[in-house]
Amino acid sequence: MLTIDDPAIVAEVTAMSDRYEAALMANDLDELDALFRDAPETIRYGVGEVLYGFAEIAAFRKGRAGGSPQRRVLRRVVTALGRDVATVNLEFQREGGTRIGRQSQTWIRTDAGWKISCAHVSLMADIS
Rank of each mutant, 00 (worst) to 15 (best):
L2V: 14
T3H: 06
V10A: 02
A11Y: 09
E12L: 13
T14F: 10
A15N: 03
S17Y: 05
R19K: 11
R19I: 01
A23S: 09
L24A: 15
N27W: 14
D28L: 10
D28W: 09
L32A: 04
R37E: 07
R37F: 15
A39V: 00
A39T: 08
E41D: 12
I43G: 00
G48C: 06
L51A: 02
I57L: 06
R61N: 10
R61V: 04
K62H: 15
K62V: 04
R71Y: 15
R72S: 11
R72I: 06
V73L: 10
L74D: 11
A80M: 07
G82E: 09
G82R: 10
D84N: 12
A86K: 09
V88W: 05
V88C: 07
L90Y: 15
R94M: 14
E95D: 13
T98R: 10
R99M: 14
G101R: 04
Q105H: 11
T106D: 01
W107I: 04
D111W: 07
A112S: 11
A112Y: 02
A112D: 15
G113D: 01
W114P: 01
K115N: 03
S117F: 12
S117N: 08
C118E: 03
C118L: 14
C118M: 10
A119F: 01
H120R: 08
S122T: 06
S122F: 03
D126Y: 02
